[in-house]
Every structure is written in C-alpha cells, then in structure tokens.
Simulated scan of single mutants.
Amino acid sequence: MTPPEPAPQDARIQLSAHARALSEQSDRYAVTLESLLATLRSNRLEDRAARETAIHIAATALVQLRTDSDERRDDLLEPVVGAFARLKNDLKPLVRFGQLEVEFVEPPENGRALPGDVAQAARAIVRNAVLSFTNTAEAQRVRIHWDCDGLNLLIGIRDDGKGELRAHDDTLRPIAEHVSALGGKLEVDSTPGWGTELGITIPLDPPPTPTPLHELTNLSDREKQVLDCLREGLRNAQIAQHLDISEHTVKFHISKLLRKTGTTNRAQLISQLR
C-alpha cells in the first residue's frame, strides 16, 4: 500500500526543518574550517604542534558528525548549561588559536531546559556572530552571555568593533533569520567607536499556529494590496513602486500583516497565500 502524500502544510514544515538542518551543518563546517585555518596560521605553535592540533580538530569534527544524532532531533531537551558548554566546545579551537578574544558568561545552572531546535539555533547564532567578527577583523574582543527567564532564552553578544552594524545589514542576516524562524526578537545597539551589542530573545515554547488569511476580517485595503503584490512575488522596492508608497511604508504594512496572521517571517506569510 502506497503511503499517503504529506499535506502541503506538513510538507512545508518538513522542508523548513530540512533547510534548518542543512544550515546548521554548513555553519558547523565553517567553524571547523576556520578553526583549522586559525591553528595552521597561529604563531603560537610550531609546525609539528600545529599539524597535530589540526589533525585533532578534524578528527574530533568527523567523530561528532558520525555520532551526534541528537542534532537532528528537535524534540530533545538540553539543559541550558549543557547547551552552553557544547557551544564553548565548538568554538574552543577558534578561540584558542584565532585572533579574537572571547569571554563566555555562564548561564544559571537552574535555568529551564532548552528545546532541541532552540539550543541548536542559539549555538548557530553565536557561531555566526563569531565567524562574522573573525572574517571582518573589526573586533578584537567579544562577550557572549546566555540567560533564561523561564519563558525565553536570552542571548547577549557584545563586541568592541567599529560600532557601525545595523539590524538590516547583510552581516546579521543569518542571525536575524534564525531568530525570526523561532518567533524571537533581535535588537541591535551600535555605538560608533565603542562596538555593537546584540540582544536576542528566543521563546522556549513554539509560536501559536498562524491564523489562515481567509479567516481574517480586519485587513485594510492597503494591506490587501500588499498581500496581492506578495502573492505575485514582488520585492519591497517593486511593491513600493507599484503602490506609489515608500519602502518604509511597505515594511510597516508587512510587519502589521505578520502580527495579524501570527506568522513570524515573510516566507511564512507568503506560504499562506498559495
């Protein structure tokens, strides 16, 4: 007997989970490669020691790739302290031999256990931030802080770079996408000459099921026009030109649509239009 085809919504959920797993895997590879490069370039190690350390990093990553099956399970819970310890272990070679000085501020031991997808996303967020700082070479020090208030995981990342980052910069796009996918919030506070602080809030419980568009009765005429443009695949600049409004106004209407539908990002909103 042929198994039934998954429902469209279930298929989208499966595709989203698959994309998240691929992103997590790619992110892990990037950290491993950056760690290898930092080790081989380090002026703190002699050639033989550098080779031995690089081999150890590669072997450890290979073993983790083969045995770390829980990374593919979103339903597992991780103690917040344990999830943070795994993050530190992921970054250990890069921190030890790279040029970036990283300070870790431990979360409280009695914090609520994290759902698997939250723990994975949190580590990915921090790794992406550290990789960005390493690649741009704008910062020399980074401070990473986790906390848990019982309802949310709170992540603080502060650097001593130029202090020119803004919330919509491409550098922060991977972080913003991770946060948005989990219904979280990203705040960026930059001070020129003093650095940038990222404040990230990720809810530990899944967001409510989005409200179907056909059930909404409180959409304005302009919001319906924006939805029609999204249905046609138009980008913000194209929507603004088509409706003779500014891009800022387009973003404002999309933000209102996200709130009204209970969706967490543009892609999820568009998926309801099909």
Rank of each mutant, 00 (worst) to 15 (best):
L153V: 03
S255H: 12
P210W: 07
E101N: 12
V188M: 10
P4D: 14
D70A: 14
F84A: 02
Q25E: 15
L153S: 02
P192T: 08
D170T: 14
G193Y: 07
A50H: 00
L227V: 01
E101R: 15
D244M: 09
A240Y: 00
Q25F: 12
L45K: 05
L269K: 05
F97S: 01
L94Q: 05
L62F: 11
R141K: 13
F252V: 06
R158H: 00
L227S: 00
A267F: 00
R166F: 08
H253G: 04
D228Q: 13
A167N: 15
N152C: 12
N43D: 13
E106L: 06
T263I: 08
L186M: 15
T211I: 13
T67R: 15
V126F: 00
W194R: 10
L153A: 02
K185T: 15
E5R: 14
R266F: 02
N218W: 05
I13K: 13
L62V: 15
R112A: 08
E106N: 15
R44I: 08
G163K: 01
H214W: 11
E46R: 12
A59G: 15
V63E: 09
D27Y: 04
P8I: 06
R28D: 13
R123I: 03
S220E: 08
T67P: 03
D27L: 12
I13W: 10
A11G: 10
A181D: 05
A49P: 03
K92G: 06
N152F: 11
S35K: 01
D47E: 14
G233D: 09
S190R: 09
L258P: 01
M1E: 08
L94Y: 00
D170R: 07
D189R: 15
T201K: 05
A61V: 03
L36T: 02
Q9M: 07
L230V: 01
